[in-house]
Design a protein around this nucleic acid. Structure first.
Length: 556
RNA sequence: GCGCCUGUAGCUCAACGGAUAGAGCGUCGGUCUUCGGAACCGAAAAUGAGGGUUCGAUUCCCCCCAGGCGCACCA
């Protein structure tokens, strides 16, 4: 609806730089534009002139009942009752596809997300990438884009040299090692190398063997990958996340030579201290090939990019990777530009803030990471305790309680992550991750369960004639909020900000609960309308939460 | 040292240069024989400091202070 208003205003004044926004204060109507403040003349006069033109727009008068000038020269638009009711009917009619659109038609978007490292535990540091990435993936799909999910597993590089060295020098049998033990070996290596930096030469030698195809090295490496994948699958299963493509860095081995050749042909690289680097105007150089002849993750990310462009011809690639990689991606994107790969494409690094300790980042090398699985288990446990204590949980069967605990616990962790703007750092605190009240997933899930319950109790279909109703302020609040959903998804996706969607859903739930608290639904004069409102609210909350990857139990 | 990011109520967060800076938690005070109280209503409480640009700055620019991340053979 916002776009209808925007188009009409653009047409009315004949310029394209018009922005129509949601109002923040409901007294200002549903939409607003400040364009009259930028037209040069007296803002109020300009606004009055525009309003006269706008009032004649048939597209506008179809959905807007009031257009007025306010404040220093804002033009405010209020949606008509007819439009609000039509929107309500639309929700009830199209249900789970309400809010979907085709603005991304024929465009392909790749989302690289999650990307945990092999031979380490799936740490909490990868939660944000997994959750935000999945939400973006879902939202872009909902907007009609063809979406490709890529899990860029960290399965290559000198870090494997460190493990190969450890396993070999200590004569360990790789098949018997647990992930815990492997992580200990990794930490142990870094401790020893701190005192004895030559150890890195050993690690690099082993990685050279690995990259060179050495059978022993490859055998150990394969075993490490398999072990890790078992844990990863378990966690993705708990999270309910399924990423269609899981190409590790090693997958791009065969593509690197041609990328390197391409770079050399264009004379983008040069030798420096035995290594081969790519220099930039405003950035520090990136290392293409180390002095021992092996590659770096810069090389592999370029190869991955080449592969993706060739395979899917994407219009947009979203890299959902932490903010500690900002420089790296600038280098990769800049190189891609040199190579002529960015023509007609957009590359975006969603540099999410880190989940860190109060004074600095978590480092697996120093053995300071927190296992994601522990956090998820704890979340489910705490949700379970609430259910046991809750009045409303009593009616649930044992196995249903288990399912609800999972949906609520995991939902809470995901929502806590998503409600923050991606850029924000999160200081990890066991008591903050599991928020179960207020602005939280359980509040929204509870509201959905409440709508289900009311509808079940009503036990009949509902009909009413539009012309019969005057809405009270609570009803109006819900109706107006419901009309925003489609626009919110577009804004959230375009800004790569799932938090805009969580904000909206919370606002809608609040409006509904306020309505619920002061209005009888079943048996009232407005029963038909109110049941429809209840049904539509449940539907929109469900649609939104589903996009965010959060389940909505029928009852809880 | 250089570069990038961040600083908003006691705490955790919102607010594409606009109208009275919005919420949640916590605190204080209400709603309770209910269609689900995991709820609702109300109160106190904030833009790190200083300059500038603008009709208008939390938002843009400069400087200072504080924190985080990064800066060639890890990823």
């Amino acid at each position: 609806m916002k776009d209808v208003v925007e188009k009409a205003v653009k047409k009315a004044i004949g310029r394209n730089d018009v922005l129509v926004e949601f109002t923040e204060n409901e007294n200002f109507g549903d939409f607003s534009t400040n364009i009259a403040l930028h037209l040069g003349g007296s803002p109020k006069e300009e606004a009055e002139k525009l309003v006269d033109i706008l009032k004649k727009s048939p597209e506008l008068t179809k959905i807007v009942s009031k257009i007025e000038v306010a404040g220093p020269g804002f033009i405010n638009f209020r949606l008509s009752k007819e439009a609000l009711l039509e929107n309500l009917e639309e929700i009830l009619k199209v249900k789970e596809s309400f809010g979907a659109s085709d603005i991304g038609k024929r465009k392909t978007t790749i989302v690289e997300y999650s990307s945990p490292n092999i031979a380490k535990h799936f740490a909490i540091g990868h939660l944000r990438s997994t959750i935000i990435g999945k939400a973006l993936f879902n939202m872009y799909g909902f907007l009609g884009y063809k979406t490709i999910g890529e899990n860029h597993l960290g399965d290559w590089g000198t870090q494997f040299g460190t493990l190969l060295y450890q396993i070999n020098s200590q004569h360990l049998t790789v098949d018997k090692l647990t992930l815990d033990e492997l992580q200990d070996l990794y930490v142990d290596f870094h401790e020893k190398a701190e005192i004895n930096p030559e150890l890195w030469d050993e690690a690099r030698t082993w990685f050279k063997k690995l990259e060179g195809g050495d059978e022993e090295a490859r055998h150990i490496w394969r075993s490490l990958v398999e072990k890790s994948m078992v844990e990863f699958e378990r966690i993705y299963n708990i999270l309910g996340v399924n990423i269609e493509n899981a190409h590790g860095e090693s997958f791009y081995e065969g593509i690197m030579p041609s990328v390197i050749e391409d770079i050399r042909k264009r004379k983008l690289s040069k030798k420096s201290l035995g290594a081969e680097i790519v220099e930039f105007k405003d950035l520090p150089p990136a290392m293409l090939i180390k002095s021992d002849g092996t590659t770096t993750y810069y090389t592999r990310d370029l190869a991955a990019l080449a592969y993706r462009i060739k395979t899917w011809d994407p219009a947009l690639i979203i890299y959902e990777v932490g903010s500690d990689q900002i420089l790296h991606f600038r280098q990769v994107f800049e190189t891609a530009k040199f190579l002529g790969w960015s023509e007609g494409r957009e590359f975006v690094h969603i540099a999410h803030g880190l989940i860190r300790f109060e004074h600095g980042k978590m480092s697996t090398r120093k053995g300071q990471s927190i296992k994601l699985e522990e956090v998820l288990d704890e979340a489910i446990k705490r949700a379970r305790q609430i259910i046991e204590k809750s009045e409303t949980g009593r009616g649930l069967a044992e196995d249903e309680k288990g399912k609800v605990a999972k949906a609520v616990g995991i939902g809470a962790v995901k929502y806590f992550d998503l409600m923050h703007h991606p850029q924000t750092d999160i200081v990890f605190d066991w008591n903050k991750v599991f928020v179960l009240e207020g602005n939280s997933a359980p509040y929204l899930q509870y509201t959905v369960a409440r709508t289900n319950s009311v509808l079940a109790k009503a036990q009949k279909s509902f009909e009413f004639r539009i012309s019969n109703f005057e809405f009270n302020s609570e009803e109006l609040g819900v109706l107006r909020s419901l009309a925003r959903f489609g626009d919110v998804i577009i804004t959230a996706a375009k800004n790569y900000s799932p938090n805009l969607l969580t904000n909206y859903l919370f606002d809608l739930a609040q409006k509904f609960n306020a309505f619920y608290n002061s209005n009888r639904i079943i048996g009232s004069d407005s029963e038909a309308l109110r049941l429809r409102l209840t049904s539509a609210t449940g539907q929109v909350l469900k649609n939104g939460l589903t996009l965010l990857g959060i389940e909505t139990p029928e009852r809880m």
